[in-house]
């Protein structure tokens, strides 16, 4: 192929469009992760309090997780509309939830019984113990799940371009239809950069939220 892999002047001329697609991509990939996190924490609490809830809930989310994204997007078209962001955001929220729910339950299960009893002995009520002791201890496991959810969500959004709304995925369709590699390379590089950036933000959040892990390793 004579065409160079990257034509820098094309990127310069289309910077505005690329920026718009990037913004669209960020919204469609990160809203699901945030919503899923907000749902997973209370749901995970319910599941760890009443253990019998856990197996059926995880069973359902596992089945949802194994449904192919393109298939779900296509089946949602009559409900949420063709080329609408909701058609992509709704399934990605369920995928993220499937990753996050086990993380929350495992994270809470990782709280040592002795710690829980110490908190009670120090006069912590159930709510205060949960917020000040149990959830902070669960943070590393929950955030490890959040990293997986964020990265896979960012990578999956581009499949949405096949139903007309895929953020940076549009660049793949565009490049393919014109046999023009530049937009494809731009799309891949920006997707990976976005994932690395999101990963970095979550790692930073973990450092801020768990100061004791740093203090321990420094000691």
């Amino acid at each position: 192929m004579d065409e160079p892999l990257v034509r820098w002047d094309w990127i310069a001329r289309n910077a505005g469009t690329i920026g718009g697609l990037l913004g669209d991509h960020m919204v469609m990939s990160l809203v699901p992760v945030v919503v899923a996190l907000l749902v997973a924490v209370p749901l995970g609490l319910l599941c760890s309090r009443w253990r019998w809830l856990y197996q059926p809930t995880v069973g359902v989310t596992n089945v949802v997780y194994s449904l192919p994204s393109l298939a779900v997007f296509s089946l949602l078209i009559p409900i949420t509309g063709l080329a609408e962001p909701g058609t992509v955001i709704v399934p990605l929220t369920f995928y993220s939830l499937a990753v996050l729910l086990p993380s929350v339950v495992d994270g809470l299960a990782a709280v040592p019984e002795s710690v829980r009893q110490s908190a009670t002995a120090m006069g912590f009520g159930p709510l205060r113990r949960l917020v000040q002791v149990e959830l902070p201890i669960a943070v590393p496991v929950v955030l490890a799940g959040t990293r997986v959810a964020a990265v896979s969500s960012i990578s999956l959004v581009s499949i949405g371009s096949l139903i007309g709304r895929g953020g940076l995925g549009y660049l793949f369709i565009d490049g393919w239809q014109r046999t023009f590699p530049t937009p494809i390379v731009v799309g891949i590089v920006l997707t990976v950069l976005l994932a690395v950036l999101a990963d970095g933000v979550i790692i930073f959040a973990q450092r801020v939220l768990t100061p004791w892990s740093r203090a321990r390793s420094a000691a």
């Binding site: 581009s158 499949i159 793949f172 490049g175 590699p181 494809i184 891949i188």
Partner: peptide, 17 residues
């Protein structure tokens, strides 16, 4: 982990081109 972020659709069209 970086490879997880690679969008399959983009990789596919690029490889074929």
């Amino acid at each position: 982990n970086a490879a997880r972020a690679l969008p399959t659709l983009g990789l596919l069209v690029l490889v074929i081109l």
